[in-house]
Design a protein around this nucleic acid. Structure first.
Lengths: 220, 220
DNA sequence: ACCTGAACACCGTTCAAGT
DNA sequence: ACCTGAACACCGTTCAAGT
């Protein structure tokens, strides 16, 4: 049932029908509930009880809505304690960024892509990570490589975890079982032995430790 | 100029107007030349000199075309030497998978997403990586974590490198310069010192070494 | 300035009709 | 079986018209 239609004309000053934050909030709800493919100007307008074209008075186009959504998610990054040992700060940053990326599973792809494109919204969140590796005494080149390695890893992880969150069952094990016999023997043996999907917390923490150890053992 | 229109009717047996491989080849050309957003059933049909609906006799829908494209790219994975020391095999695998993912920059997002979703096409290519870590003498849980870490890293890297390939200039440095003064001091200092974007070969190889060292130092 | 509504140029896909 | 073409239910966005 569509909301009651408004009549044309400018609303009373100070009581706008639409605002940028209200539009973005409604868009985020829509994406969370129905997925990114359900986000259209027309459906969004429906949800706001407004004509589709009204939205264009507050945001220039659909791309601006999506990047506004992504920017608002990036702004929720949890702070990282500044005085802890550098390894703890790296761990805290990795968890904070992972949590941010997975807070809205239907938006992971946009978040990770935007982060990879290094938009204004995405670039600032890496500063505490750079600071942590800098505090470890690494040379600038090593700081850059270490931070880049962790950022790229978390982006890849979030992509996979987001995809896994949208399916049921055990895709990895099921797909391995469906392969022709003789294919992928090592993967079969390993999967049978571990029986935990590579998207859980244990896996994530183990990967972060691999990177921390790899970075730390470069000095030696 | 549209190609000459065909008249309705079944073509001569054995001389089909359309085949699945021909459709996928045309679709890959279209994506390589004009980007994934230019891939529509209508434009693809135009390029094939055919009615849009003809395509549906060979592939069930647009999603099948995209996943067919991705599967065909995965099938080009370069082989990894099976008898080299495990570190060399890990390096060779990382290069082969990165090259595959970046072979079609306009398709990176689909390749990486599909890999993260562990489709049939994507799952098989990881076997040599698992075999390499297995040959290193790792326990199954460590093999799984090490392989997952590297796969997720390369996916994240390919996403960023693909995005960088579609822009010009030095986005990282330019964006840092545009930030309010006082923001991101460590990133500024590091960027000024290294002056190489985190998408180059040196960066990629350094990250692979970090992961190899991190994995190897777990036994110690 | 801000909201409306018709219109344009696209989409993917179903279905009936050709041979 | 395979190709065509009209039709349906969508899109994002421009533009003129309201107040």
């Amino acid at each position: 049932v569509p909301p009651p239609k408004r009549r044309p004309g400018r609303p009373r000053p100070g009581r706008p029908v639409l605002t940028r934050p209200a539009i973005l909030a409604a868009a985020l709800d829509l994406v969370d509930e129905a997925g990114i493919e359900a986000l259209s100007m027309r459906k969004l307008a429906d949800r706001l009880g407004v004509d589709p074209m009204s939205i264009y008075h507050h945001l220039p186009n659909k791309a601006a809505i999506v990047s506004g959504l992504v920017a608002s998610v990036f702004s929720t990054m949890a702070p990282v304690p500044a005085d802890d040992p550098w390894r703890d700060r790296v761990r805290a940053w990795a968890h904070a960024y992972r949590d941010l990326a997975l807070a809205h599973p239907n938006l992971v792809l946009q978040i990770v892509t935007d982060s990879a494109a290094a938009s204004d919204a995405a670039i600032l969140i890496s500063e505490p990570l750079y600071a942590a590796f800098d505090a470890a005494g690494l040379a600038p080149w090593d700081v850059s490589n270490a931070a880049g390695a962790l950022v790229d890893f978390v982006n890849g992880y979030a992509l996979a975890a987001g995809a896994a969150a949208r399916v049921t069952g055990d895709p990895m094990g099921d797909r391995l079982a469906a392969l022709p016999p003789g294919e992928a023997p090592t993967m079969r043996r390993v999967a049978a032995a571990v029986s935990t999907a590579p998207t859980g917390t244990g896996f994530f923490d183990a990967c972060v430790e691999i990177i921390i150890r790899g970075v730390a053992s470069a000095d030696a």
